[in-house]
Amino acid sequence: MGLFDKLAGWLGLKKKEMNVLCIGLDNSGKTSIINKLKPDKSQTQDIVPTVGFTVEKFMSQSLNFTVFDMSGQGRYRNLWEHYYKTAQAVIFVLDSSDRLRMVVAKEELDILLQHSEIAARRVPILFFANKMDCKEALSPVQCSQKMGLDAILNKPWHICASNALSGEGLTDGVDWLTDQIRLS
């Protein structure tokens, strides 16, 4: 880092960089959430299933986020682990209307928590209980029960209901994440 960058950092002019990994089952709304978080003019209209991953950037008040938006399809899930090492936070997106596959999501979460790169570190995990606008959607509390979130003791976590289409609930989650990082 150059001298000028350091100076800017001290003066608080330059925002802190933050690497976030966004994972979750397919069709849970990861790309939609990230898309909604981006500035209005760079948002895209059509969201297609992600193959592999894409890198997106957005800003909150005090942080620059770099998000690795991973593909959630079954055949690509084992590739997530390549990005655990660099992740400073994890966003785990749940489809709260899909009761049936909640167990699959739990399975994936367990694998994540047991992974050597994650287990030892105090990585904050933000859960979005997405698709809250659906009629049969589970509430965040029900989700956390189904996912067994109470068992996560060594990491800070937070769950909030969200709607990626309208953007409802997203800022709530991002604010929590910002706070966590400022604390650490």
Binding site: V51, G52, F53, V55
Partner: peptide
């Protein structure tokens, strides 16, 4: 698994 960069390249 080189296919992982598909979406990034498409973008």
């Amino acid at each position: 698994d080189v296919i992982i960069v598909t979406s990034s390249l498409t973008k």
